[in-house]
């Protein structure tokens, strides 16, 4: 099973770095959905010969929530947004990708210095190191997105990615998480995303855009007036 585990982990790493470099919101949501699916299947791979039915069920529920429901909610909320492209972030895309790569290397270095023996059925040190590195680099990527991007949607996605990383870290440290705890975490996540979605819709309606920098500048004014046409020419308004 080495190849599959390594394959999944490297795919997750790849998706994280692609998320750092992408500027289109729909692609970002798709990335996070696929990463969430992979993350939920990963514990099954690690406990390969002894897979309990409960863990399969749990993995399926998690995949449903992380891979379909939450991205679906986010898709729905950005359909109303006029401009589904991220603005140029505080730290540019190319540099973000390079920082992401550097951090993965750092994470590998750190993990090779720690000795982790709790992981069941991981024959090579590579997989163990890789798992640890993936976990903390995912957390890092999530935090990075939260900090350096303008749009509220990307910040929500950063939060989701962070949660993926925390889950992966949990798989390493505990090996076999008690299900109640995980279900509770998942429920928290779902509620948090729904609240964020509602907040997003409100921001969009008020400002006609989900650029969070507007929140700072416009904290006093009401809705932005659209362009008015004074003449006999009818300016085609955006019909939403």
């Amino acid at each position: 099973m080495i190849d599959l585990q390594v394959g999944f982990l490297s795919l997750i790493l790849l998706l994280n770095i692609l998320t750092l470099g992408s500027s289109r919101l729909k692609i970002l949501i798709k990335n996070v959905a696929v990463a969430g699916t992979l993350v939920s299947i990963l514990p099954l791979l690690f406990s390969y010969p002894k897979i309990a039915a409960a863990s399969v069920a749990f993995a399926a529920v998690m995949m449903l929530v992380k891979g379909f429901i939450i991205p679906g909610l986010l898709y729905f909320s950005i359909r109303k947004v006029s401009d589904p492209i991220e603005q140029v972030p505080i730290i540019g895309y190319h540099i973000s990708v390079i920082i992401g790569i550097v951090f993965i290397l750092l994470a590998l270095l750190i993990s090779s210095k720690l000795s982790l023996h709790h992981l069941p059925s991981s024959p090579t040190t590579l997989t163990r190191d890789l798992l640890f590195a993936t976990a903390i680099s995912t957390i890092f990527v999530g935090l990075f997105l939260l900090m350096t991007r303008w749009k509220a949607i990307t910040q929500v996605l950063g939060y989701l990615i962070m949660e993926n990383g925390i889950y992966l870290l949990g798989t390493i440290v505990v090996g076999h998480m008690p299900y109640i705890l995980e279900v509770a975490v998942l429920l928290d996540l779902l509620v948090a995303v729904m609240i964020m979605g509602i907040v997003l819709l409100n921001i969009n309606e008020t400002f006609n855009d989900i650029d969070t920098s507007l929140l700072v500048a416009r904290s006093g004014s009401g809705s932005r007036s659209g362009m008015e046409s004074e003449s006999g020419y009818s300016k085609d308004q955006q019909n939403d």
Binding site: V6, L14, I101, I104, L105, L130
Partner: peptide, 9 residues
Amino acid sequence: VLVVLATIL
């Protein structure tokens, strides 16, 4: 990125 990942692996 792909090359770096391959190197890591």
